[in-house]
Amino acid sequence: MTDRLAELSAAGVAVWLDDLSRARITSGGLAALNRDQHVVGVTTNPTIFAKALAEADDYADQLRELKAAGADAEAAVRAFTTQDVRDACDIMRPAYDASDGVDGRVSIEVDPRLAFETEKTIAEAEELWRLVDRENLFIKIPATVPGLAAISEVLGKGISVNVTLIFSLERYEAVMAAFLSGLELARANGHDLSRIGSVASFFVSRVDTEVDKRLDKIGTDEARALKAKAAIANAQLAYQHYERVFSTVTWDELKAAGAHPQRPLWASTSTKNPDLRDVMYVEQLVAPGTVNTMPEPTIHAYADHGETTPNIAQASYAQAQVVLDQLAALGIDYDDVVAVLEREGVEKFEASWVELLAAVKAQLEAV
């Protein structure tokens, strides 16, 4: 049988799981995905943790201990999430060692309510890094404008960062600039650049969800012909930006000092529209030095019928630009689309975090 995920990995795409729960850890499910499905990293977010804590009683014993210790909901959530991430880091440690610190990473996000507060984000990142206490951890920081300064400062402290909620090409340029500034600061602070990792999480399918809604309102044949094309075009052009930035003299100097590049990570790669091919956001974004983080059903779908075309993203730059130009000609305001998506992304994670806190508070009161 064809090992399709092995082919994807050989084409330079690291397969990461976009999910985590205590059941995955204790059942051996996460270890099995690493062993059998080439999964070499894990991403989490507030929505994932809210779902994990709501659907299982795996946290009951720890909940009772926290209650006895007088913990409030905030402390309990931090205890739950940091333990799960710490344990996942341990499971992924062999992949981390085998890849010289490039893969084998597990992400945990700062409190999403801090997305527009630079100093508090920096403090939260330091605290999470201390609590998890694993070298192969990523701290997720949203790519809001206030988040950019936090990203540089956190990297400068020697802390590895997953920059999340990137939707626009302009913001992605700013994220890469913040990464380079952060590494220069880390070098000045005496940190070993070879141990600092980073990915830039560029969101994919949500772009189609928003753009296609606007195309439906236009309703012409020309508009309908552009449906389900914006997201892939946007991400392919992001990779073009990545190639340009990581071929500069500035990067060459940091690379010579031991730094690893900030890899593009394709996030939100499950299809939201059931009429679309379920692995399209994986197949069309194959490029060397990238990560694709997927929910487990998408991983299994790719293992079953995914088709890997090496370097397809790089071969599509001209076509991708045509798509964005055609959308603009129809009146689709790109800047407005990405602004809406960033705002909604932060709001959704905030809502999940608040929901999670409320649920844990209720559980503590019921113990």
Rank of each mutant, 00 (worst) to 15 (best):
T43C: 01
V15L: 11
I48W: 09
T44H: 14
G41N: 06
T26P: 01
W16N: 11
L30Q: 00
S27G: 10
A14T: 14
A31M: 04
D36I: 01
L17D: 01
W16M: 09
T26E: 15
A14P: 13
K51D: 13
P46G: 12
D18Y: 07
P46F: 06
D36E: 14
A31T: 08
L33P: 03
A11V: 06
W16Q: 07
G29D: 10
A10S: 15
T44D: 02
V15M: 07
N45H: 12
R24T: 14
R22C: 03
D36H: 04
T43H: 03
R22W: 11
A23S: 12
Q37T: 10
I25H: 11
L30K: 02
G12N: 01
W16A: 09
R24E: 07
Q37L: 13
L20G: 04
G12V: 03
G29Y: 00
A31H: 10
A32L: 12
R24C: 07
T43L: 07
Q37V: 02
G29W: 08
V13K: 09
N45M: 06
V13E: 08
A14K: 14
K51F: 03
L30G: 02
V40Y: 12
D18M: 04
L33C: 03
H38L: 11
T43F: 02
V39N: 08
I48R: 04
V40K: 09
I25R: 05
G12W: 05
A32V: 01
V39H: 13
V40L: 14
Q37W: 13
N34Y: 04
G28L: 10
L30W: 03
L20P: 00
A32P: 00
V39C: 10
L33E: 14
L20N: 04
D36K: 12
S21C: 05
T26C: 00
G28I: 04
A23H: 15
T44R: 05
P46N: 11
V15H: 08
T26L: 10
G41L: 07
R35C: 05
A32F: 04
V40P: 03
T47Y: 00
N45Y: 05
L17V: 08
A50I: 03
V15G: 06
D36Q: 07
V40Q: 05
G28T: 10
V13Y: 02
A32Q: 15
H38D: 02
T26W: 08
A32K: 11
N34P: 00
K51Q: 15
A23R: 14
G28S: 10
T43R: 01
G29V: 01
G28Q: 12
H38A: 09
L17I: 01
L33A: 13
V42R: 10
A14E: 09
D18R: 02
G12Y: 05
V39G: 04
Q37K: 15
I25K: 04
S21Q: 03
R24N: 09
W16V: 11
A10I: 14
S27Y: 10
V15S: 03
F49H: 03
V13N: 13
G12Q: 05
L17N: 04
S27M: 07
H38T: 01
N45K: 05
L17R: 09
G28E: 06
A50N: 02
D19V: 08
A11T: 04
R35P: 00
G28A: 12
